[in-house]
């Protein structure tokens, strides 16, 4: 299971080697999330329509290792955009992937850009 977790490492925008088109913006629910597949990875993509911002992170919840984060509720904690895992409501910052309940594990986050109604996610592989 460690291998599964190790697949996901945060990427920052300047590091991106490849922007991958993962679908039309309208395919993602407003103020909600959906999951996309890239190679072996499952990536959760969130559309914060209220502030016209997008975030992406691993779909794998590091707590019990299930592919579920895209199905979680989103919102903010004191201004930090976050997702709550649907399994046990562990919450993670979508800015840096840190767990917001003060626990050890964190998630990998990926940059998102929107161009001509298409959603792109930045990878380094």
């Amino acid at each position: 299971m460690q291998e599964l977790l190790a697949q996901y490492q945060s990427v920052t925008a300047p590091e991106v080697l490849k922007w991958v088109n993962v679908g039309k913006a309208k395919d993602f629910p407003e103020n909600g999330g959906a999951c996309i597949k890239y190679k072996n990875k499952q990536i959760a993509v969130f559309n914060f329509a209220r502030e016209s911002t997008w975030y992406a992170c691993q779909n794998l919840c590091p707590h019990k290792l299930e592919m579920v984060l895209s199905r979680g509720m989103i919102g903010d904690k004191e201004g930090i955009p976050k997702v709550a895992c649907p399994m046990h409501k562990k919450t993670f910052s979508l800015k840096d992937g840190n767990n917001l309940n003060g626990e050890d594990y964190k998630i990998a986050v990926y940059p998102v850009k929107i161009e001509a109604e298409n959603v792109y996610i930045g990878f380094i592989d």
């Binding site: 629910p29 909600g32 299930e66 592919m67 199905r71 979680g72 509720m73 989103i74 399994m87």
Partner: peptide, 19 residues
């Protein structure tokens, strides 16, 4: 209003241990 529903209501089913 799908995106404000709690995890289970969102998909009208009960999520289980393996998702």
């Amino acid at each position: 209003q799908v995106t404000i529903q709690d995890s289970n209501d969102k998909f009208l089913a009960n999520i289980q241990r393996n998702g």
